[in-house]
Design a protein around this nucleic acid. Structure first.
Lengths: 226, 226
DNA sequence: ACAAAAGTGTTGTTACTACACCCATGG
DNA sequence: CCATGGGTGTAGTAACAACACTTTTGT
């Protein structure tokens, strides 16, 4: 049995952000390419060390601003990863966040240190630096449940969207196909969205009704409960 | 716009644990009494600084062992609290955990520095040191949803228990009353528990069938889904 | 005999699943 | 006129909510 610490941990605190977007009918993550060792050349999550004057949430907002060019998007703390050997340089504990960004709002800043932030399909992002692959997996799982019991979808879609787009988003994130009629019925009954007066024409097919979210702020749906 | 950090944050990492137990038909939390400033005399969560050789999960296990006398109980990372002024002594980021312990397994160690670890009803624990009141609230909220879609109740009940005990636990945690027949029907249909051959007699009333959880490891129930 | 908790079914309502055809448009 | 995605209804089934009385024991 341990009684006294060898010493208190001298850790550095990092903040990493999983930036999800929905683009070309795929769920994508924003990844940068690491320039230095360790894991030079590997794709990695945008992140960095915590500054003295900021909270981790502020650090996440800063990273979102610098690497994705967005502010005020849906952001939530995900998990704190602290395996002792997750960073070969020493003890780094990472407080992770995930964010949802409509692809139209993303401004990938290619200038930054040629880290080349770019979108990668979540299913096909290869092996990432550090434990970032597990972080992305964990975030994707969290996203699945978020979509199921909140209106978080508003954060991944343009302001106005068709029912098909909404359904495809759910199909991609939940990774299974859904019945069109049942999905419409159920989603409309949630009262989260309303039809606009506009329609989307241009396809060589019948124009689609455009919908919008009634409120573009996080709403929790009442849980099924006991 | 910030461009460079004044300096990287020199933070200390703490681990605090919300130890829940179900005792005397109430949901309770384990609290110690702080001996030193800040907040001397105030009740607080058991916790401490992270040691060099351990992960935060190991630190949580250590705290559980030292303050509650238990090992191997249900423990899960809760949230990382990092408001800059949460600790007046300086920048302390706390990675919090919550744990579920059957009251019979708790061994409150009164010897330890007269911190007097003791159980307090969650609804009535007064104002705690630091931001620990918010941490307890957040943990209670998490516990509510855990009970709703996992078998986590096994971690708060003795190995064998009556249906009434189970229902009371749910009523206390969810903070509303449930219909006896509907609760039995639904809970039995989940297949999480099975009747034992024993009954509990002794009350001045009909003896109650004793049940046990089929598996005393975490199980997720399939979500309602879209 | 009585107090106290254990145990048990039915009915109406609501949500879920599965399933197939016509519509409006652009080319 | 045809290819493309948009849009709609119904019927069977399963889950949920509401509700009251009988049983077994100890005192």
């Amino acid at each position: 049995m341990k009684t006294y610490p060898d010493e208190l941990a001298k850790v550095r605190l990092a903040v990493d952000v999983v930036v999800f977007t929905y683009d070309e009918d795929k769920l994508k993550v924003l990844l940068i390419r690491r320039q230095q060792a360790p894991y030079a050349g590997r794709p990695a999550l945008p992140g960095g060390f915590l500054w003295a004057a900021e909270t981790t949430a502020e650090a996440a907002a800063r990273i979102l601003h610098d690497k994705a060019g967005v502010t005020g998007v849906f952001t939530e703390q995900l998990f704190t990863f602290d395996a002792p050997k997750r960073d070969p340089r020493g003890r780094v504990v990472s407080v992770t966040y995930y964010a949802l960004v409509p692809s139209a709002e993303l401004r990938l800043e290619p200038g930054i240190a040629s880290q080349a932030p770019a979108l990668h399909a979540v299913d096909d992002s290869g092996k990432l630096a550090f434990d970032h692959s597990s972080i992305v997996d964990y975030a994707a799982e969290r996203l699945r449940s978020k979509l199921a019991y909140t209106n978080a979808a508003y954060s991944l879609l343009p302001e106005r969207f068709t029912f098909s787009q909404l359904q495809q988003l759910y199909e991609v994130v939940l990774d299974r196909s859904l019945d069109k009629r049942n999905f419409r019925k159920k989603y409309l009954s949630l009262g989260l969205i309303e039809p606009t007066k506009e329609q989307l024409s241009g396809g060589r097919h019948r124009p689609a009704q455009l919908y919008r979210f009634v409120t573009r702020r996080p709403i929790e749906l009442p849980a099924p409960a006991f």
